[in-house]
Design a protein around this nucleic acid. Structure first.
Length: 397
DNA sequence: AATGCGGGGTT
DNA sequence: AACCCAGCATT
């Protein structure tokens, strides 16, 4: 197989950006953040678009600008409100970093996004990609904005075999884009590349027949489009196993637990989670399956009698009783949730219980009783949202 | 250079 | 269930 890179003459380089821009002028996607090139709007959209698809971002973008219309509003926002605006988008440090940058902009740049690349890149959460996007779109700076789309397009155009997952490959793509990008319309050029990568030069089954650059694509001419881009590293997701405790008191409030301020899903709320081993989890899940097959009925009101609790040390109830002795637990889980993060996979068995009316449950510092009607004012990550859906379904049975 | 950090899609 | 998509900060 031919693994040599393609080299373009100056004439070929000069042809590329006009073709791409002509295509963009015809086919550009009409997106909310393209209505104008206000730096703040560009910034918000580019941060949201990191690792996130356009269709997902659109509603968040509107709401975010509604809640925080200016950099000043963002700088002064409550952390909780900020997180709420990002709820469900993922990578929550993005919005914390954005607020930190907004405060920085208020102090250092009088509340206005700086217009030179060095100052833009000095802001927290703005790296080479986002800096290039803001600089080129909002200020017409001739800076590349190289994301996964662009690396895919260029790896195919030039048959670049550099592993896109390695930091040192960045330089290779940076040089190629700088050699070919439009000096007159850098922002449109960068956006055109992203559109091309998203709609034509897609990861699987690219639509080469409609590509404006098909005559100059090395990978296509060699019938190697599926060989690019090259990426070797595989991400391993570590499985984690939990029992989630949905405890209700006599006011029908649920116990919620606020996660630590560092790490995964920082400062977000879930039902209390008890980590269990894989073997314990598997056994519980198996018991539950058997139970469902035996009874063929909802287990909604099937509680463990108080006098039996001590006999059930190895069961779900045994574990729950150890965790929360002042709760009456249902015999079996009421649902299972699985959720994949970037580096972890959570397996959750949802257990439901009620506090004994005569006993006061001791709350930890980070715990609170909350009625379902007030769930909206708490920031829930996806696994928690999935568990709430299960509770909802069971309630309506 | 390696790791942590969410959530979505398709096959 | 197993595969794909992947910027930036921190260490």
């Amino acid at each position: 197989m031919n693994k040599t890179q393609i080299v373009w003459s100056d004439e070929e380089k000069a042809v590329m950006s006009p073709r791409l821009l002509d295509w963009y002028d015809q086919e550009m996607r009409l997106l909310p953040w393209r209505e104008n090139t206000d730096p703040y709007r560009v910034w918000v959209s580019e941060i949201m678009l990191q690792q996130t698809q356009v269709v997902t971002v659109i509603p968040y973008f509107h709401r975010f600008l509604d809640w925080f219309p200016t950099i000043k509003d963002l700088a002064e926002a409550e952390e909780d409100r900020l997180l709420k605006a990002w709820e469900g988008l993922g990578y929550y440090s993005r919005v914390r970093n954005m607020q930190s940058a907004a405060q920085d902009i208020m102090e250092r740049f009088g509340g206005k996004m700086p217009s030179n690349i060095e100052d833009i890149l000095s802001l927290k959460g703005i790296g080479p990609y986002t800096g290039g996007a803001i600089g080129s779109i909002a200020y017409k700076l001739v800076e590349p904005a190289i994301d996964g789309n662009v690396m895919r397009v260029y790896s195919r155009l030039f048959c670049l075999g550099d592993d896109i997952g390695e930091a040192k490959s960045r330089k290779v793509f940076d040089e190629k884009v700088r050699e070919t990008m439009s000096q007159e319309r850098p922002g449109d050029f960068n956006q055109a590349l992203m559109d091309l990568g998203a709609t034509v030069c897609t990861p699987t089954s690219p639509k080469c027949e409609i590509c404006p650059l098909k005559e100059m694509c090395g990978a296509l001419s060699r019938d190697q489009t599926t060989d690019f881009p090259v990426k070797k590293k595989k991400i391993k997701t570590v499985p984690m196993f939990y029992v989630a405790l949905a405890v209700q008191n006599d006011k029908e409030e649920y116990l919620l637990n606020k996660r630590p301020e560092d790490g995964l899903l920082a400062n977000m709320w879930t039902f209390p989670l008890v980590e269990v081993s894989k073997s314990v989890y598997t056994q519980m899940a198996q018991d539950w399956q058997n139970y469902q097959q035996d009874t063929k009925e909802p287990n909604l009101f099937d509680f463990v009698a108080e006098e039996d609790v001590s006999l059930l040390d190895d069961s779900l109830i045994g574990l729950l009783n150890e965790e929360q002795p002042d709760v009456i637990w249902q015999k079996q889980p009421i649902g299972e949730v699985k959720h994949v993060f970037s580096h972890r996979k959570w397996h959750l068995l949802l257990a439901k219980g009620f506090t004994r009316v005569e006993k006061e449950l001791k709350l930890k510092e980070n715990e609170q009783w909350v009625h379902v009607e007030d769930f909206d004012s708490f920031v829930f990550p996806k696994p928690q949202q999935k568990m709430v859906v299960i509770l909802d379904e069971k309630r309506n049975k």
